[in-house]
């Protein structure tokens, strides 16, 4: 086991910062997970999952003191509903809270130069209850040290 792990990359730091932003009181949902890998449990009526999707270096910016990246982070907004309180309304409410929160601090506590929306997809299913997920992909503009993925 590595006794001295390397510092987190700017990518993980961005995901951590986004989770912290969404968890700040009042949290946007009872559960905000970072890179959860299992299906949400039946006890979760609403939940948010934040994960790294990928990143591209911005080659239009000269290699100077920093290296600029455009990092895609997906925020999955999960909500449950039923015939009386439909899931499309529940997921819409959660999506609005998530988006509003991220727009309040697009620097993610100072780790990013900005956060811009890239895409939104929504899907639905029904069994004994209705389930819905709105996945918003956000582009985070941030920087690393030159020729590195560590903070500058």
């Amino acid at each position: 086991m590595n006794q001295n792990p390397a510092p987190a990359t700017i990518f993980l730091q961005a995901v951590q910062a986004m989770v912290a932003t969404l968890q700040a009181a009042p949290a946007v949902a009872p559960k905000v997970y970072r890179t959860r890998l299992r299906p949400l449990s039946q006890q979760d009526s609403t939940a948010v999952v934040v994960r790294l999707a990928g990143s591209d270096p911005d080659t239009s910016v000269g290699q100077g003191a920093v290296m600029v990246w455009g990092t895609a982070i997906t925020v999955e907004c999960y909500a449950r509903g039923n015939t009386l309180a439909p899931a499309d309304e529940a997921v819409d409410d959660l999506l609005a809270r998530v988006y509003t929160r991220l727009q309040q601090d697009p620097s993610l506590g100072g780790v990013a130069g900005g956060v811009t929306p890239h895409s939104l997809s929504v899907d639905y299913d029904v069994d004994g209850d209705q389930t819905a997920c709105a996945t918003v992909t956000l582009l985070v503009r941030h920087a690393s040290a030159p020729a590195s993925v560590q903070p500058f």
């Binding site: 999960y78 449950r80 004994g128």
Partner: peptide, 19 residues
């Protein structure tokens, strides 16, 4: 019967049931 079902939403899905 009310067995487990998986709501196929998002990348993960949500646990549900099938009454």
């Amino acid at each position: 019967a009310n067995g487990y079902a998986a709501g196929q939403v998002g990348a993960l899905g949500m646990a549900s049931s099938q009454p």
